[in-house]
Design a binder for these strands. Structure first.
Length: 433
DNA sequence: TTATCACCTTAG
DNA sequence: TAAGGTGATA
């Protein structure tokens, strides 16, 4: 794609059914990506939830990650702070390798989403009715600290306000990167602030001024608690990351100690940043979905009250249907129920021989279809096959990565969820160190 | 174990 | 009044 390569993008072969950026980055998993129209000819196409003419950007600690896509490729690049002129090409190659490494990790490209959709569809008529309209919805593997703070913000809140709040955290508590203005249109990009920046008592007042409401205290207290417990940002990050290799229940219990973290928020953090793909956060949307499609009673009258026991019951039921990647399946149903996605356009299936996106309007979830009796239903064992492994990297890139030991690191990434069997990980588990 | 309430703010 | 809840109390 000359358009993309001229803009400095590198390409990764990836069917859009494996990842829809527009869906994934707007469905309330992450709140810090910004969307930029690509300066290309195609002005006739209006911005739509699945269009492929946008670039999405996320500011990390040392660079801005940029991604875009078409039907067959994921395009990626990074913008770096201005550095002394004398940088060699090997330094550039190293940074490219790091960027690719981040992309593969963050989007969890080792997971074959098409396979998961297939299995969920086989076992669940409700999912079957949605899967074609909401393809490419996968779980991100986000930074645990950012996820923790973002989801404390999510209590009693909506996506657009959460997004503003999280943006404000960056603007007011973290210095922007010194990026070349030529590449950023003078826009500022702030990394997510570390715990030490949010721990001072004065932060609570500041956050309140910024409209965080009662969550202001939760965020400051949680940051303070973690600083007291672990002493430094580095130790906090280390500890949070260590939760990835602990059993779900233990990791959840740790999170629940933090101020502003209840069961639902804890489960979001587990699912979205701590490698617990089976966890199903039950929010009001999922609760209503459970009532509408999976045989749960919504309390008496119009009031629907969530109790801990009901929460557990719903989780258990959904896991019995969707299996070990239930949290991933939940995201598809959740997104389908979002008003913002009511007019979601069907991404172009690579197999379909048409070049233009098919517009299809839907109005929320389809009507319930009779579900098989629980006893007759096959138990789902959503496997984690890795069809994308290696083949999604070009030879050149592969060599590049080997040069810097990045493939090795990728392969050895520990997938710790107890429900994943070793046979499912044949490719990604390569050589656990 | 479950049920209420207060809590910040905004959109519909 | 509800929005992707939590914490405190009964």
């Amino acid at each position: 794609m000359s358009l993309f390569s001229s803009a400095g993008f590198r390409s990764l072969p990836l069917p859009i059914g494996q990842l829809s950026l527009a869906a994934v980055l707007n469905c309330g998993q992450s709140f810090r990506w910004s969307c930029h129209p690509l300066a290309c000819a195609d002005s006739k196409s209006q911005a739509s939830p699945n269009d492929t003419s946008n670039e999405y950007r996320l500011c990390l600690q040392d660079r801005v990650i940029c991604v875009a896509q078409n039907n067959k490729e994921l395009l990626y690049r990074a913008i770096f702070p201005q550095t002394p002129i004398c940088e060699g090409s090997s330094a550039q190659a190293l940074r490219d390798g790091e960027t690719l490494s981040f992309i593969r990790d963050y989007f969890q490209l080792d997971q074959d989403l098409l396979k998961l959709y297939e299995v969920w569809g086989e076992n669940d008529a409700t999912f079957r009715n949605l899967k074609d309209r909401f393809s490419g919805l996968r779980m991100l593997r986000q930074d645990p600290w950012e996820t923790l703070v973002s989801f404390i913000c999510s209590a009693n809140n909506n996506i657009s306000r959460i997004t503003k709040m999280v943006q404000n955290l960056g603007i007011h508590f973290s210095e922007p990167l010194a990026l070349p203005s030529s590449q950023t249109n003078n826009q500022k990009y702030h990394p997510f602030p570390p715990p030490s920046a949010l721990a001072p008592t004065s932060v609570a007042d500041k956050l309140r001024e910024l409209g965080f409401g009662y969550r202001a205290k939760f965020i400051q207290k949680t940051a303070e608690m973690l600083m007291e417990e672990h002493g430094s940002d580095a130790e906090i990050f280390k500890w949070l990351n260590s939760l990835r290799s602990r059993p779900t229940d233990e990791a959840r219990a740790e999170l629940l100690k933090l101020m502003g973290v209840g069961r639902k928020v804890a489960d979001c953090i587990l699912l979205m940043s701590l490698d617990k793909p089976e966890v199903v956060p039950v929010d009001t949307h999922v609760f209503q979905i459970a009532v509408k499609y999976y045989g749960f009673k919504g309390g008496s009258g119009s009031k629907l009250t969530m109790t801990p026991k009901l929460y557990d019951d719903i989780t258990a039921k959904l896991v019995s249907i969707w299996g070990s990647y239930s949290g991933w399946a939940q995201t598809v149903l959740f997104t389908a129920d979002l008003k913002a996605f009511a007019n979601y356009n069907l991404p172009v299936a690579p197999s379909a021989d048409q070049d233009t996106p098919v517009k299809r309007t839907i109005s929320m979830l389809p009507t319930p279809s009779p579900s098989p009796s629980p006893k007759k239903r096959k138990r789902t064992s959503a496997t984690a096959s890795s069809a994308l492994e290696v083949t999604s990297i070009t030879t050149q890139e592969s060599e590049l990565l080997e040069d810097y030991g990045i493939q090795r690191r990728l392969r050895s990434r520990k997938v710790t969820s107890s429900v994943i069997t070793s046979s499912n990980l044949s490719l990604s588990s390569g050589s656990p160190t």
